[in-house]
């Protein structure tokens, strides 16, 4: 299942930021409502822990509120917000030892279900679906499990880069600035990450090593 989120026009953010800066608390709450799911998802993808992802979301929006006066719209609000969120998440992650994805409580273990399905279908149905129509295989437990472990093979920075691009929809320009490199380098790195992720998913869904 593909998750649909409403398009967020940048100009609407600018209007809300201006109103919030003028003291309209409802406008600030509208910004929080608009971005909270993506902020949490980026944080969760980096820190791999639900409680810490929520702390990152709290810190990020608190920071946004405290810096409203300094935000004059020279950059998109969302770009700034997700940059702050990824910074908070990476800092939190680097203060502790890494945990395997398997310890995350709300990532459901699917292996046992895959081995004893009550509906009579084979876990390999998801594998063949992955090759034919990967978008329609997304609900399969096997795919969810594969996604978690495939993500864990990426470095922290690569994970942050991927999530800032795919969830926050950050531009190549913003990512180049965030990671202090060039736009071609960012594009090349994203390509390598996508290839790695595809290969890791394929390894897990087909049981073969990635190319």
């Amino acid at each position: 299942m593909l998750v649909s989120l409403p398009e967020i026009p940048a100009e609407d953010d600018e209007v809300l930021v201006a109103r919030a800066r003028a003291g309209d608390y409802d406008a600030f709450e509208a910004l929080v409502r608009r971005h909270q799911r993506r902020v949490y998802a980026v944080a969760y993808g980096i820190v791999k822990n639900a409680a810490e992802a929520e702390e990152v979301a709290q810190e990020t929006f608190l920071s946004a509120f405290e810096h409203l006066d300094g935000f004059r719209g020279e950059a998109r609000f969302s770009t700034w917000l997700f940059r702050v969120a990824s910074n908070h998440a990476l800092m939190k992650l680097r203060k502790k030892k890494p945990e395997p994805w398997g310890d995350v409580t709300d990532l459901e273990p699917s292996l046992s279900r895959a081995q004893s399905r009550s509906d009579g279908t084979s876990p390999f149905d998801a594998l063949s679906q992955w090759a034919r129509r990967p978008d329609e295989a997304a609900d399969a437990n096997e795919v969810q499990e594969a996604l978690s472990s495939a993500l864990d093979t990426l470095s922290d920075d690569d994970r942050a880069l991927l999530l800032l691009r795919s969830i926050a929809e950050s531009s190549h320009e913003a990512l180049a600035e965030r990671f202090e490199t060039t736009i071609p380098a960012i594009k090349s790195r994203l390509h390598r990450i996508r290839l790695q992720l595809r290969g890791q998913l394929d390894e897990r869904l087909h049981g073969k090593p990635p190319p």
Binding site: R37, A41, L147, A150, S166, L201
Partner: peptide, 16 residues
């Protein structure tokens, strides 16, 4: 698969 992988990661995390 190349196009789907990042979208699947995105959806996987948003569902969490």
């Amino acid at each position: 698969q190349y196009k789907f992988a990042p979208q699947a990661v995105r959806d996987h995390l948003l569902q969490a």
